[in-house]
Design a protein around this nucleic acid. Sequence first.
RNA 1: CGGGGUGUAGCACAGCCCGGCUAGUGCGCUACGUUCGGGACGUAGAGGUCGGAGGUUCAAAUCCUCUCACCCCGACCA
Length: 491
Amino acid sequence: MGKEITARAQDYSQWYLDLVKKADLAENSDVRGCMVIKPYGFSIWEKMQQGLDKMFKDTGHVNAYFPLFVPKSFLAKEASHVEGFAKECAIVTHYRLKNAEDGSGIMVDPDAKLEEELIVRPTSETVIWNSYKKWIQSYRDLPLLINQWANVVRWEMRTRLFLRTTEFLWQEGHTAHETAKEAKDETLQMLNVYADFAENFMALPVYKGKKTESEKFPGAVDTYCIEGIMQDGKALQCGTSHFLGQNFAKAFDVQFAGRDGKLDHVWGTSWGVSTRLMGALIMAHSDDDGLIVPPRLAPIHVVIVPIFKTDEEYEQITKVANQVKKDLQEKGYSVKYDNRNTHKPGFKFAEYEMRGVPVRITIGPRDLASGAVEVARRDTKEKASMKLEELVSQIPVLLEDIQKSIYQKALAFREQMTTHVDSYDDFKKVLDTKGGFVLAHWDGTTETETKIKDETKATIRCIPLEGSMEKGKCVVTGKPSEQRVLFARAY
RNA sequence: CGGGGUGUAGCACAGCCCGGCUAGUGCGCUACGUUCGGGACGUAGAGGUCGGAGGUUCAAAUCCUCUCACCCCGACCA
């Protein structure tokens, strides 16, 4: 009672909000535009961090931490960068409060005005390149491969939990290299890391591609991205990787002595994913009963629910449950035995389904008698009977199967929702009736891109790096096109 | 920044137009009992300066003025 969520078919965005709340992932804070990530939601984010962090380390990166505050003068050094972020910066102007003279509370002390205002970082390129200037003198100092886990602030007008909040959590990698090629390779390497993560951990197939001139990161030479599709047919950018050229090196005068003894500016990259991935995870897989979490990101892999009436039954069941729990934990799985006596089994079933726990084991008197238990999988809601002695060997197999099956379902959906079109009429028709990704030819101009965006609300999500590269004619102007590009209405 | 809306118990809301006894309902919460293989039920409780300030009135959640806050819809963004 009172736990149901709005059906997807009825109101997708309400479904999303209900789910975030009922699955206990996050809630709106009284601080405008900011969210409170609740323990269960945060534990999923931690699993994401762990997976990504290992992949960063495995590719030679190290973690560090740079300041939250960016002096205004830093931000101003790279022209297109400052222009891109100027409209959404939070600014610290004072450093002290005092009691109001009329007794009405506290006020900003006008005498404590900062000499130079500090910007709360919307991203850290400038602060980091300011350090790199001091750290890099020679080609021997390169490459510099650093990542940081941090919060950033972008003063958005409209926010949605996880998808767009004023403050969000992310990681940002910032690297410096000796040659353009090395930096470009790094950019693509990290793009591939993100794509692997999305597919193997999040079970979310993504398209990899390059952003158009108008969609790229302010300050970058090239921006690459991974794009996923949500169940309502809208696209979501899930990660970006930028080739910065020498833009920040020049802005911050970061030069190194090369092997030939000559000075040159270093080549940079930056790349990031954020708590927006939580939004992607939710919208890609979940259903009207709640969250569906792929096992590799699930904070709890298996929940055991006891069913009992008497104390004797409870004791017998608990003995078995604790053994199962111990055995599975020894194999590296996270298991919860929910022995609360304050909630009924049916309530617990619904609760763990809402939270997307991949596997539920139910143990009751009947099971003790038969030596088998009921095992239910969250993704398909199928139930099966499994012999007690087989649990330890079969649960891992089941979890692996769930991981794959969630991915396969998402992949099939994406394939079904990716449409090739060859005329502007079809383009509009597909967007209005079916949605999803549209692969169409485009003449490569910003004018055409803008026209399409104004008329259809669809944007070029990316110029795909893979897939058929056949030439054709722009669906709007008929001018020649080198390859199809990926359009969609997006979050 | 434009347009629309809402502030009443922890949450969701009714009451307001047409002022009048002790401000209600559902969920949640507490206690006890019966329940327990798909979101239990009964009984008894706790919980409110009706967003704030001022005004009209014998009397204001309700009418008037001001103010604050938040939410939703449009142009920008991970």
